[in-house]
Design a protein around this nucleic acid. Sequence first.
DNA 1: TCTGGGGTCCTAGGACCC
DNA 2: TCTGGGGTCCTAGGACCC
Length: 393
Amino acid sequence: MQHGALADLREIPSVVGGNEESRHGIVLAKSLPAKRFHIQTGETLYSARQKCPGLVVVPPHYWLYVECSNAMVQILREYSPEVQRFSVDECFLDYTKMDKHFGDPVKVANVIKNRIRDELGFTVNIGISVNKLLAKMAGELKKPDMVHTLYPDEIPEKMWPLPVKELIMVGRATAPKLHALGIHTIGDLAKCDVQLLESKLKSHGRLIWEFSNGIEGSSVRNDRPEMKGIGNSTTTPFDVTDEKTAFMFILSLTETVAMRLRDAGLCCSLVAVSIRNKDFISYARQRKIHYATDSTDEIYSIAKQLFREIWRDEPVRHLGVRVSALSLGKNSQLSFFTQKDPVKMKALDSAVDNIRLKHGSRAITRAAFAHSGISARSGGVGEEDYPIMSSIL
DNA sequence: TCTGGGGTCCTAGGACCC
DNA sequence: TCTGGGGTCCTAGGACCC
């Protein structure tokens, strides 16, 4: 709207959606008017259009969302030093003792909400309570542009009547199991016998029972949690039926993963490859390596082995490469067994990284991709070129 | 013109050790 | 005609979040 768009996507049935031609055709986000047609995030654009002919579909602009997210966090930090990013569009803010400086939390929440709307141009919901779980549930109440409280004494009135699937951590698999036990609302869950839930759902049963009673005690962490793994995956634009083509996609994914790994200053000791076939069956294989590496070539070579070991010689629609068991890059243990000179490999990776950082990721690519019709780098949500990675969230 | 991509955590089973 | 118990590490798969 700030750039002169004619229609406000928020006021018409509209969705942000992926590109159907490249088999990315799902709903990523929806407007409230689109929601009234029962369009759901994650469903196919095809099905969304059936529910709402004339639906407006626009492509995503991930880096715009990141910029907006950063601007929002900047405002939040004015009101508390303890702000935890939960996702690109959600934060937790610890207001403990901050009322001495800024006053009543509900009043301040309204000020913050209005500032974000007026200064940044988008609306937010703010939920207030005594812990993160209840604050989050409060934020999910009526939208848009609202402030809600959900204090413990308000739980029976505001949270218990909701369908149990609205509770965080009750998803596609748990909801039907709860329904089978006669549990349909969050209130039903809260009044259910914990022992019974624990026997049916193990520790998850106790967790969601506690949540349904508003019990949750984690703190708002300002620092970013330690990264556990880095992965990229992609739905291929066409079914892959031969190993050679699969290896090209795996290489392009490995390029992204390894660059992110080096950008974060880390090495990995575990490599995993995942496959989804044309019937949507997924499987994966992982291997622990007894040294740590951040080399594109080394990760690629392990990923190729893993693919060979599991591929069922069938049409593939999705491929993924993921590294974990991360350690600090400095002083990394060199392997006795790699054929190539590790010092030279490191220098090569670092030279390529620097060229891409300076001149864009397309400035230098492997010759294998030339005229192949396959992107030399894949993974990531961005339609645009990646600038650099770990610095964002 | 069917069905995305990036994560974390938990559980179960097998191999191996003493 | 038999066959423990405690532990760690590794792999596969599933569930959840946004």
